[in-house]
Design a protein around this nucleic acid. Structure first.
Lengths: 340, 340
DNA sequence: CTGAAAGCGCTTACAG
DNA sequence: CTGAAAGCGCTTACAG
């Protein structure tokens, strides 16, 4: 059915070696006769020859494939990243296989194994909790990878992430400048370092402004019970005396879920309560009061991650760790007087 | 570095054939000695043997890989589909490679070629406009594929899609039942069949209710100039005498973009204007008036598509065409009195 | 300038 | 019960 090098060779009456040379543009290097080149190219065209990448890979040990392991590809954050990585990889003739770990290290291991068996040339990974062993395995085996969005603070490994501390610090500082004094934060109860950094930025912003870092103001909830727990958290914020006058949500899901409840409560944003969210989504624009949010540099994440990975694939170099800056997109929900 | 069958064979002092048999669980079938089996398994474990899927694929002609070609993987609709397809494929040990065509047939062709060279076993494709040639090519080459979300009406091919006509008909009928009489629709100016079907459903609903199908009420806009064109369309709706009192948006992007403008205009939904949207997104929940929308059966789309594809891969069977039913999720934006 | 040969890591008839 | 051999489709030293 599908034509192979051998078919072309037979048709022209030469060896497959010769065909391979001209198909791969090595006719000069190998000083193949002009007329020969023409005949081979013609035959290739006639047979509609398409190289079998699998056979090439077996020989070369390179598959030109990147494994992209995320928590959930349907999350807008990762879906956006996927698109950027796809485009960037394509420029170097790489293709990407993705897998969703659902935040469990077991799934992440399984995915990694499957992709390793498929001989991916490297990985871009948003590591789950407890993935130290997995990362170390890759390091021991000398398999190129770069972490994205998240990273493990004590592990020397390539990563492209946000300056989470500063992003949170800036977000909360804005709320303080806008006159808020009882600022709550709802984060996940997690050991994920990047989320802890966001909490740290929040606390530091309060401290530097001489505000008390009260434990009740930083609620840590279960991702598995997002909806219920967020309600409880917001309810407890409102029960305080005086109640919370601003909330910082450090992820897109937290923000969206929080806003839904705020709407159900009929609270007025920003008058009753100011809000700063995280990540970009259409939902922020459609809320009655446009939401101020921390925008992550998605395009840079994707580009840098691919670039770094490809560099590592061609020669396992030194480690690069990138903490990119977020942009605070200020709109009405954070209070103050956005002049416009 | 990585252990191969040969390494195990050498270590145990047997042929690779034997190793292959026991690794693949054919020891019974081949009546391999019990002690031999134990020694081989032990060696495999010690060498941490992982089969090279590429080599297997070259031999078997099967890669256990599905190519998933969509317009844009970062669109929530396709991202959600991707996740479902991933999970479903995994159950059968399939992996998925995705590619975004950006709605251009050239990109779609290129993607298909790249994935074909990588010997994917089959495709799940959301075809772009003018992709007839591409689809026919797959058919001629006898390459398994199933279309998803969209399909070409005249081409006998597997597909899993929505009953678009009925979905639109039901959505518009609801608006009519709720007393709306000047119902506008903003669709893309496209030859994409599934979108035309949605327009047809709209028109038919008007006709059956003895409402005039006025051309000004059905605006067809350019996807490339979504924002500007949607403003123009809505402006022209409002300039009518009497003005439009309801709008049906037949896609998520159209709905979200339309709602943004409606909010800027400070129109009251549903009092000034009722709205029915398409697809599911958080944004619909955060709008001040929860949006009534046509929900597509995403899980069924993904499952059926994979199931159909795998069936076709194992034996290129007869053609199956599925038009699944949408669910109209009725909330406040469509007017009327949702009793709750 | 061109061909024969080996090999990438696996599987699978075929012998014995 | 086990091994030698061929072959999947390609590439690449090595000869000549």
């Amino acid at each position: 059915m599908k034509a192979s090098l051998k078919d072309i060779a037979k048709k022209v009456g030469v060896s497959t070696a010769l065909v391979s040379y001209v198909i791969n543009g090595k006719e000069r290097e190998m000083r193949v006769g002009e007329e020969m080149v023409a005949r081979i190219k013609k035959a290739a065209r006639e047979l509609n020859y398409q190289p079998n990448q699998i056979a090439k890979s077996l020989k070369s040990g390179k598959t030109l494939t990147i494994g992209f392991i995320v928590a959930d590809i349907s999350n807008t954050f990762f879906a956006n990243l996927a698109r950027i990585i796809e485009d960037e990889a394509k420029k170097s003739n790489y293709t990407v296989i993705f897998g969703s770990s659902d935040e469990t290290p077991e799934n992440a291991w399984n995915l990694m194994t499957v992709l390793l068996n498929r001989q991916v040339d490297g990985f871009i990974i948003a590591p789950t909790v407890n993935s130290e062993a997995q990362i170390k395995y890759l390091q021991e085996k000398n398999i190129p990878f770069v972490l994205i969005d998240r990273y493990l603070p004590d592990l020397p490994a390539n990563y492209v992430a946000l300056d989470n501390y500063k992003a949170a610090f800036d977000a909360v500082s804005l709320l303080i400048r806008n006159g808020r004094r009882r600022i709550g934060m709802v984060n996940y109860d997690t050991s994920l370092f990047h989320l802890q950094e966001r909490s740290r930025g929040y606390k530091q912003a309060l401290t530097e402004n001489k505000l008390q870092v009260e434990p009740v103001l930083l609620q840590e909830i279960r991702e598995s019970h997002l909806k219920e727990d967020i309600k409880e958290a917001l309810d407890s914020f409102r029960a305080l005396e005086p109640p919370v006058d601003a909330i910082f949500f450090p992820s897109n899901k937290l923000t969206v879920t929080g806003l839904k409840y705020i709407r159900d409560l009929k609270l007025k944003v920003p008058d009753d309560i100011a809000v700063v969210g995280f990540d970009e989504t259409d939902a922020y624009d459609l809320f009655y009061c446009p939401i101020t949010y921390v925008r992550q540099p998605m395009a840079a994440f994707g580009k840098q991650a691919v670039e770094l990975l490809l560099k590592n694939i061609e020669s396992n170099k030194n480690i690069t760790q990138l903490n990119l800056e977020a942009t605070l997109v200020v709109r009405a929900s954070s209070g103050g007087m956005p002049d416009k």
